[in-house]
Amino acid sequence: MSVFFHELRQGWRSLLIWTCAISFMLGVCVLIYPEMSSQMGEISTMFADMGAFTQAFGMDQLNFGEFMGYFAIECGNTLGLGGALFAAILGASALAKEEKEHTAEFLLTHPISRTRIVFEKLAAVFAQIVFLNLVVAAVCTAAILLIGETPKASAIALLFLAYLLLELEIAAIAFALSAFMRGGAMGAGIGMALGLYFLNIVANLTEEAKFLKYITPFAYTDGAKIVSDLVIPPSYLAVGMGIAAVAVLTAFLHYRKKDIA
């Protein structure tokens, strides 16, 4: 597993920065809840009256005045978007950086098969995402205990699981992009993550665009559904995991035969 550990050593600084930033933001959001809850009546009314904007961010289905509603929306914005960007950057640079920085020649002239290199790099990407999510979940749990809230543990766990799966799917798609690109794939990865986020907003706005929910992984992290039904929307999740599997398979098949510049 030398490539796996090498990847972790190469990426630990970036992982630490992203983990601290997301944990800090989400932790602070939880810690300020007691102060905000006193003004929640007005805030809830205000958010409920914003028409399409309310719908776009799922605030029509969640009670922002309750801790779970507040947490699901904050979690969606901070861990959802932040985690998606981290996953996209990580996945997109995994293979393409070797060609961009001309280190592919060094790496690929060692007696390790390309399949193994792709496997170890993908494992390192997934391991970093799991680490970030575990730390964020631990920080959030500590913050929730500190403010004395007692939300349904299963709902919180499902929210974190949904965001973990979203990040893994985005990382898998970005990883496939990385296998095809020679220069920096990071821009394409970030663009893809933001594009999927906005597709979900569009899908929330109008019934005609609801089919987009099968394309964007943000659809199965819908806090309202997870909190009320205690389930990750299975149809969207199944399609998402299918897309991730196809992306990973494509990356393996393409990189095995790729000409290294």
Partner: peptide, 8 residues
């Protein structure tokens, strides 16, 4: 290789 590039 002719141009040696490593993890800086």
């Amino acid at each position: 290789p002719s141009e040696t590039a490593y993890y800086s």
